[in-house]
């Protein structure tokens, strides 16, 4: 009896794993198998033609690239500075704890709410309009909490003895941070940032009403122009337009590009993390 329940129980767990892998695997398989035939050199490099039923999606790829780059350029310095301040400069107090908790909370706020914020602040208040700038800033703010908490975690993991050793040699506080603490924490910070990049590249809701548009003539001209972006393009192809059949084909291609992009980015982050774990045991 005792043996039987054990066998049944373990079989059940095995089943859970198999079902999960089956579902997740089937999604990947579905996107890859159907998207593969759509992708061609032309698809990657051409602008859309014939009312979105032919041609390529190059502007969407470029748009996603710009939005991601912009958001990281904005969020990385801010987030890193904030984490350094919280870990290295502010006395460990009640207030810091509250700040840390609110940052954790903000990391869990739905992305569409960040979209609302971006709409109210960047699009309307600063009057940047629906533009690449508004979108990048909104995405940047969205991953700011993630970058702060990942950096904070990495900084806290640096042994206190490194800081003491450096200070005892007559290094200033800032020299210690710059030359010892940051280099040691870098892989951890990097992992957080790369995961952030992966997330930004795939987000749709925050750019729905701050940056994205269904169609542009060619490539974005300035930071104040509307942009096409891969995730939004998939959504738009599926819900708008007049040629659902042909549009679905293009959407498969977009989904595959996006998937490949995001998986590639997050694998890099996870490989760095695995290595780091091995290094420190």
């Amino acid at each position: 009896m005792k043996k039987l329940t054990e066998k049944l129980g373990f079989a059940l767990l095995f089943l859970c794993m198999i079902i999960s892998l089956f579902f997740l695997g089937s999604i990947l398989y579905f996107i890859v198998s159907r998207g593969f035939s759509v992708i061609s050199w032309e698809f990657l490099t051409q602008v859309p033609k014939k009312a979105m039923t032919a041609g390529g999606v190059a502007p969407a790829i470029v748009g996603t690239f710009y939005l991601t780059l912009g958001s990281i350029l904005f969020a990385l310095p801010l987030g890193l500075a904030c984490a350094i301040y919280l870990c290295e400069y502010s006395p460990k107090s009640y207030v810091v704890n509250i700040i840390r908790m609110s940052i954790n909370n903000l990391a869990g706020v739905p992305s569409v709410v960040f979209g609302l914020f971006g709409l109210a602040v960047f699009v309307k208040f600063f009057n940047f309009g629906v533009s690449m700038l508004s979108g990048a800033l909104t995405l940047g703010i969205m991953i700011l909490p993630n970058i702060i908490s990942a950096s904070q975690e990495a900084l806290l993991a640096v042994p206190q003895s490194y800081r003491e050793a450096s200070l005892a040699l007559g290094a200033t506080h800032w020299q210690t941070i710059k030359k010892v603490v940051l280099p040691t924490a870098m892989p951890g910070i990097l992992t957080g940032v790369i995961l952030g990049i992966g997330r930004v590249a795939g987000e749709t809701a925050p750019i729905l009403f701050t940056a994205a548009t269904f169609y542009t003539r060619g490539f974005p001209k300035s930071v104040f122009s509307e942009v096409m972006a891969l995730p939004y393009h998939i959504y738009a192809l599926m819900t708008e337009g007049t040629h659902p059949e042909k549009q679905t084909q293009i959407a498969y291609g977009c989904a595959l590009i996006l998937l490949a992009l995001v998986l590639l980015i997050s694998s890099v982050a996870i490989i760095i993390r695995q290595r780091q774990r091995k290094y420190y045991g």
Binding site: P159, S161, Y162, E164, A165, L167, A168, G170, P183
Partner: peptide, 16 residues
Amino acid sequence: RRKVGMVFQKPNPFPK
């Protein structure tokens, strides 16, 4: 701290 150096309980070389 430059004038008064210190060697700690546990060896703490930098990861350099």
